[in-house]
């Protein structure tokens, strides 16, 4: 009753003000459940991020807003990405996007979406790749690694989590920049690639930085493929510092179908922006071991286009199938 009175008086106040149109548009959205499509099964890294985001963005979207995570696993995320692209752009279907993987899928097989099929909302996680060897390896630096690769061209096995993902792109870029030939070994997922590396079954890996967290006693990270050194690992040099201009990582963020009305886009982006400053959200994300990097709207779109371009170039120069 009290709430009803309050909202009545708010409406009354709003109708007398000049801001009537704008504030009503904002009050209208969302009026029903928002589906957050995740192209992977429940419990994976992307799913956990999505559920955390859903919980906090609900609060930002205002009283009564509900965001429900909908898992649509399969085909390396493609089923989910396609579902987002083909949904009605009414703001009630949004989803998680993984770059560059989502864009790589549009080159190595038929996909019914491309970079323009989405309204890019916000990037949340940025997880740079690394160049890493097992702790027991004789290789202690990038220089030694390159020398080792030169001595046995095409023979040094690199463990990858899969073909056509950021692990693979990192390895290709490293091989080009260092002018060496490597032997790419795609495993079934990041954890298997890491175990093969720890067991010495492959000589080096290019796994994402978050995959090395907790394994400091088993793995030796030679370089990180980010623009700057990571606050979590200030002693690990970037490849750039060492003279190799390679930057690669995986980005996880949120997008809606293309053609989302501007006011809804603005609502969602501003809710995500306020979520990014919520200390409770930040501490939850940190606990899950996610390196965060926020970018919104047009900036995120630029990031997606750059990743798409990188995937396209890699596919054209060194197709993986």
């Amino acid at each position: 009753m009290k709430q009803q009175l309050l909202s009545l008086s708010l409406v009354a106040f709003a109708s007398t003000s000049l801001l009537v149109g704008a504030s009503l548009a904002q009050a209208d959205y969302p009026e029903k459940t928002i589906n957050l499509v995740v192209g992977y099964s429940a419990g994976g890294g992307t799913d956990v991020m999505a559920r955390t985001v859903a919980k906090y963005v609900e609060e930002q979207l205002g009283e009564g807003a509900t965001v429900v995570v909908k898992n649509m696993p399969g085909a390396g995320g493609q089923i989910g990405f396609s579902a987002i692209a083909s949904a009605e752009p009414d703001g009630y279907t949004i989803g998680t996007m993984n770059l560059p993987a989502a864009m790589a899928l549009t080159y190595d097989r038929d996909a019914d979406y491309d970079v323009d099929s989405f309204t890019w909302l916000a990037n949340v996680v940025s997880d740079p790749n690394t160049l890493v060897v097992p702790k027991g390896s004789d290789i202690h630096s990038l220089e030694e690694l390159i020398e080792h690769a030169r001595n046995s061209p095409g023979k040094v096995p690199v463990g990858l989590s899969s073909l056509g993902g950021n692990d693979h792109f990192s390895a290709i870029q490293f091989a080009e920049a260092a002018d060496v030939e490597l032997n790419y070994v795609p495993f079934n997922g990041a954890a298997q690639a890491r175990s093969a590396l720890m067991g010495g079954h492959v000589a080096m890996g290019t796994m994402a930085f978050s995959q090395t967290v907790g394994f400091e006693e088993e793995l030796r990270v030679l370089a990180v493929l980010s623009d700057e050194r990571l606050p979590q690992a200030p002693d690990v040099p970037t490849a750039k510092e060492l003279g190799f201009d390679i930057e690669m990582g995986s980005f996880r963020g949120l997008a809606a179908p293309a053609g989302l009305p501007d006011d809804i886009r603005a609502d969602l982006v501003s809710a995500l922006e306020s979520m990014a400053t919520d200390p409770a959200f930040l501490s939850d994300m940190a606990r899950q071991g996610n390196p965060l990097s926020f970018s919104y709207g047009d900036d995120y779109q630029a990031l997606a286009e750059a990743q798409d371009e990188a995937a396209r170039r890699t596919w054209e120069e060194t197709p993986w199938k």
């Binding site: 939850d284 606990r287 071991g289």
Partner: peptide, 9 residues
């Protein structure tokens, strides 16, 4: 993972 428990040593 949902409870922030990362597998590993």
């Amino acid at each position: 993972l949902i409870h922030g428990l990362q597998p590993g040593p």
